[in-house]
Design a protein around this nucleic acid. Structure first.
Lengths: 137, 137
DNA sequence: AAATAACACTTGTAAATATAAAGCGAATTT
DNA sequence: AAATTCGCTTTATATTTACAAGTGTTATTT
């Protein structure tokens, strides 16, 4: 017997996560929406990591069909759309913050502002609320 | 200005995470090591998700070279190896637990034992220590 | 000691996915 | 009305992954 707490899950939560957002580009899009204030197609396309446009289009469509992001016409400019995290998407924040905490510890080059890290380690819930407050809607 | 807490990171922690374990198979291997008591090559190969052997070999090598897992001869059977999480790997647990918490909420089919979920939401640190205590070494 | 089996890969080939660049239609700007 | 912006979509090529079979090393059996 391995671990009485976990046993052998058939409907595995990690596998579910992977099926919903389990690739590099999805993570980076979620990061852009959650922490960088990006919301337009070209924001993601030109974010520096160099996603190709067809991959971006399919990732946005997948995230939308999984209910993690929403897509609405931009009222300020009808030729473009505004992408935003849904409630389901916003609730990925604890996972993202945990990843960032880990990365800051193990990557000497990770440039997370010290103030951010301090908040993250002292009072993560407060930080989470602050970031949520800055998100659209 | 978008968010004074995040600004524009060049050494992005999410990107770092993706470079270290940022694909579906790496997540599933980490899950197997962290929660399922798996430690041998064939455990991963036959875990049910159907990873092909060459991909498994390269993922194990990558995770090892990134310092997330270790690889040692099995003293009980010299023809095989024991894979285990390093300290760096074990510290991915908060991220994994956060993902599982989210998945349990949004996937009706996710079969995480209720006892596990209750512990996770009431006292995650205690749960974490329990799981750590069950891990090798 | 030799043959067999178990184990962890490695290789070859086909299929799927990613990248890069160009093209397209609708909406806006000029 | 013409030109431009925007969000894709398509196409061609490159890379990655999947699947099947094979290889080398280490146990185990005979």
């Amino acid at each position: 017997m391995v671990d009485k707490n976990t046993k052998d899950w058939s409907g595995c939560p990690v596998r579910f996560g992977m099926s919903q957002f389990g690739d590099k580009w999805s993570f980076l899009i979620i990061r852009d929406l959650m922490f960088k204030g990006r919301k337009h197609y070209h924001d993601f396309a030109e974010a520096g990591e160099g996603i190709s446009t067809n991959v971006l289009a399919t990732r946005l469509a997948d995230l939308e069909s999984n209910g993690i992001i929403s897509k609405l016409r931009d009222p300020l400019k009808g030729s473009r759309f505004i992408y935003a995290l849904t409630q389901k998407g916003k609730e990925l924040m604890p996972m993202m913050l945990a990843m960032m905490d880990w990365a800051e510890k193990y990557d000497a080059d990770t440039e997370v502002p010290q103030e951010f890290i301090k908040k993250l380690r002292n009072n993560p819930d407060k930080l989470k609320q602050e970031i949520l407050g800055n998100l659209p809607k």
